[in-house]
């Protein structure tokens, strides 16, 4: 039963690779080692924990919903439209991917804040203020996370065989019907993967949220914000919250394992 590969891994690659694995895995192991497992149920039962968790789940899910509604059409435009300036558009759209989230938060604040360009108008016309509300959390998370969805769906659209769309057209389907009944189902795995990625990114959002939405328990204090706060006042609580986030992340990864951990399901 010996099936050894012809070429082993050369030492100059093997050693750094092993170090990289240790570097990625050890902190997580450390987190689990230091977890006060005995106190875990009690800590999780804390109302503040439940509040932060609920807020995180709700806002990340809302942000993912908004991203799907706006991001899938945007991905279609990027992948299918032949308009000029498309590459510029793609660059603009993906800026939030590389932008430090804090900068995103500042930018959102300058636009949607009470003195901001749009924010002032919203305040004067409707009496609506966005910063430091749960709405602001959702907006901040959407700003940071939507590009992940757009990139993922655009890739799936590019990989999809456009001749199916030709076939649909010869069967009397206009472009909107074709999108709904053929294109979208064909790229559904890509959309699902993008949505999960987007959701995970939104769940972990910190910088833009604390800048634009603040840190108010119950309305804007999501799990990552709670972890940061507790680490200064009550480290064991921070560890428990961290383990909870880790569990959610691992769950996400398990959900996507067929798609990402085996490279087979890539081009759906």
């Amino acid at each position: 039963m010996r099936r050894r590969r012809e070429t082993g891994v050369p030492a100059p690659l093997l050693v750094p690779a092993a170090v990289a694995v240790a570097f990625l895995v050890l902190p997580l192991a450390g987190l689990l080692v230091r977890t006060p497992w005995a106190d875990l149920p009690a800590q999780l039962a804390e109302p503040a924990v439940g509040q932060a968790l609920r807020l995180s789940l709700v806002s990340a899910t809302l942000a993912t919903g908004v991203s799907l509604l706006l991001g899938v059409p945007l991905a279609w435009v990027l992948a299918r439209s032949r308009a000029r300036g498309r590459s510029v558009l793609r660059a603009l759209v993906t800026v939030p991917l590389v932008l430090p989230p804090v900068v995103g938060g500042v930018a959102l604040f300058l636009v949607l804040g009470r003195q901001g360009i749009v924010g002032r108008w919203l305040d004067e016309a409707f009496g609506v203020t966005i910063p430091f509300t749960t709405t602001a959390v959702v907006i901040a998370e959407t700003f940071v996370a939507m590009p992940f969805l757009v990139i993922s769906v655009e890739g799936a659209l590019r990989a999809a065989d456009t001749r199916f769309e030709d076939a649909a057209a010869t069967l009397g389907a206009d472009r909107w019907t074709t999108f709904r009944r053929v294109t979208l189902p064909l790229v559904a795995p890509g959309v699902a993967a993008g949505a999960v990625l987007c959701w995970a990114r939104a769940l972990g959002e910190f910088g833009a949220t604390i800048t634009f939405a603040g840190n108010f328990p119950g309305t804007t204090q999501t799990m990552p914000l709670a972890v940061y706060l507790e680490l200064q006042s009550d480290p064991p609580a921070a560890i428990v919250l961290s383990v909870l986030l880790l569990a959610v992340s691992l769950g996400t990864l398990l959900l996507l394992r067929d798609r990402w951990l085996t490279r087979s399901g890539a081009a759906a």
Binding site: D166, A167, A169, T170, G172, T177, V182, P185
Partner: peptide, 16 residues
């Protein structure tokens, strides 16, 4: 295309 009364068969069927 979608307003033409035609049917088309492609080389590799392209069934959805």
């Amino acid at each position: 295309a979608h307003e033409r009364r035609l049917g088309m068969v492609f080389q590799d069927h392209l069934l959805f």
